[in-house]
Design a protein around this nucleic acid. Structure first.
Lengths: 305, 305
DNA sequence: CGCGATAATGCCTTATCGGCATGAGCCGAT
DNA sequence: ATCGGCTCATGCCGATAAGGCATTATCGCG
């Protein structure tokens, strides 16, 4: 029995096999490869002898893959596809700056884009990040490689990696907190304007409602103002005009800087989180895989700032 | 400028490039490939001319990849790795039965393993599933391709695909439900034994506690019995000895059969879910990718039965 | 039954691949 | 400085595998 290693990969034969598997015809494959039918025939036969298994079942009218052929073909085809693309990429731009298109939700972009992009560029100066913002929820809109989305865990064939689960707590300006010093959480909320963040497909106020229900607060939550993004709500809260439910990690810098305060210990996991979202096929692209790994590792050490 | 297609993939040159990239030395690469240094040198030079970009920077003492080389190498190496493995797989067993090792949590295995395995085997008769349960006592099998785990959404480099989020509701035997006919949810829970499922890293009773808090029930939840698996708790509940929080999807067949009833409309999403868990690298294996896609598509149409 | 498909095969040509020997830089030790 | 040892590049040549052409075998179809 032969075992294969790098020194002896029957590459030309594999290319012939790939073409035949694609066209399911020796003649057509030969034509596609620009060689004669006999050459292709030889290659495939040689490969079959090497493997000790037939790759195609020759039928009078048609050619069909054997189990062995079926097992081999997807790998071979995928590999050649990737090599082909990689070669053309290099020819085109010398592999100089691979650009990775990234979409971020607005609040995330506003708070974290800079530290992330700077840190990533430091580690991978040759990967150019073309980044754009998108709506707060939902799937990425345009052609993009990787997107961060704010969503609940969802099913789907796309690869979806959790960066962190959102954990919210009431936040407001220091002045407002001081003015209501000593009040209970329930009283504090009842006495102040509530700032909501709109979420696609959810009724407004749902997060405040879930929050108050979770902590058993008897307050009416369907009042106040609603904003498109968390960052806007936070900004409004910082001006002293109300209290918003803030993601502690997302607004860590504001809290540290003192422009926002979180007077209560109660934090609530609302089932939403920030996910890195990309197509399963794209994971085969080393640049995208590298970026994914880098993001996951970085956020595992806590949300950057 | 040349553009590459299948007909002119310089495969032998790429193999040489891969080896040189691995060893960062023409001589060492030549030795590893079992050919002379000159052959390797020619190949790399030829490839560089084809691409119009240098792949290595020749320095007196050392060889370093150029940007173009760095962009190309991971793809080429990964592709050859996969081809090498695929070829050896075929040699070994003719690609006949690719076996995929699958691990399932006990309750999941008990309720869903059969329908899933049967349906999958019908669609892919050539993939043999070697499935094992994450037994309570069973030694954790590290050698596995894909696992279903019951967990909260977590961060990590492994690819984690949500199958469905757990949604629980009180369930008990029909007799017990009849005996307490007409009671409110609060009363019903207060008057019956509570059956818990133990979760690693969580205090016992946490789900009942979250459930009652979510619906504003004033009942004590830290009482009753705790079980290792949801299936055990459900079985106990079916015997009429208490009320358990059941995942509606997981126990759909029991509910349909009437051995368990869920007398209340209140369902609660507890933040846990069933995830398909696999290594990011493994996604390059067509068999594993196929299984992943199949599972995701199937569960998207609802939990099988 | 012959015609038109297909893939397999024998024979021959070719050019790709690779080996050997050598050359050209560069480094460090004597 | 010079020489030996190391690296990769190159000229030349031979082996061989890759491929072309023409033919054969097999099957389906009109």
């Amino acid at each position: 029995m032969v075992t294969f290693d790098r020194r002896w990969l029957p590459l030309n034969a594999l290319r012939a096999f790939d073409a035949v598997g694609r066209h399911l015809s020796f003649t057509a494959a030969a034509h596609a490869l620009g060689v004669s039918q006999s050459a292709v025939s030889r290659h495939v036969i040689g490969l079959e002898e090497l493997l000790g298994h037939a790759l195609f079942e020759r039928r009078p009218q048609s050619l069909v893959l054997t189990k062995a052929g079926g097992a081999l073909l997807p790998t071979v085809r995928g590999s050649f596809d990737r090599i082909e693309h990689a070669l053309n990429d290099v020819v085109r731009d010398g592999g100089g700056l691979r650009t990775l298109r990234l979409q971020l939700p607005p609040s995330f972009a506003q708070k974290l884009a800079l530290p992330i992009l700077q840190a990533f560029r430091k580690d991978f100066p040759d990967i150019f990040i073309d980044f754009s913002s998108l709506g707060i929820t939902g799937a990425p809109r345009t052609e993009t490689d990787v997107a961060v989305i704010y969503d609940r865990p969802r099913t789907g064939e796309a690869v979806s990696d959790l960066l962190w689960m959102s954990r919210v707590t009431p936040g407001c300006s220091p002045a407002l907190a001081a003015a209501h010093q000593g009040k209970t959480l329930e009283r504090f909320i009842a006495d102040n304007e509530l700032l909501h963040v709109k979420l696609e497909g959810e009724p407004p106020g749902i997060i405040w409602q879930a929050f108050s229900r979770h902590f058993g607060l008897g307050v009416r939550t369907s009042r106040g103002l609603a904003f498109d993004t968390a960052a806007l709500a936070a900004q409004y809260a910082a001006s002293g005009e109300g209290v918003a439910l803030l993601d502690r990690d997302l607004f860590a810098t504001d809290i540290a800087a003192g422009t926002l305060v979180t007077p209560f210990a109660e934090t609530f996991e609302d089932g939403y989180g920030y996910f890195l979202h990309l197509s399963a096929d794209d994971l085969a692209d080393p640049v995208i895989a590298v970026f994914r790994g880098w993001m996951i590792r970085n956020f595992a050490r806590g949300v950057p700032s």
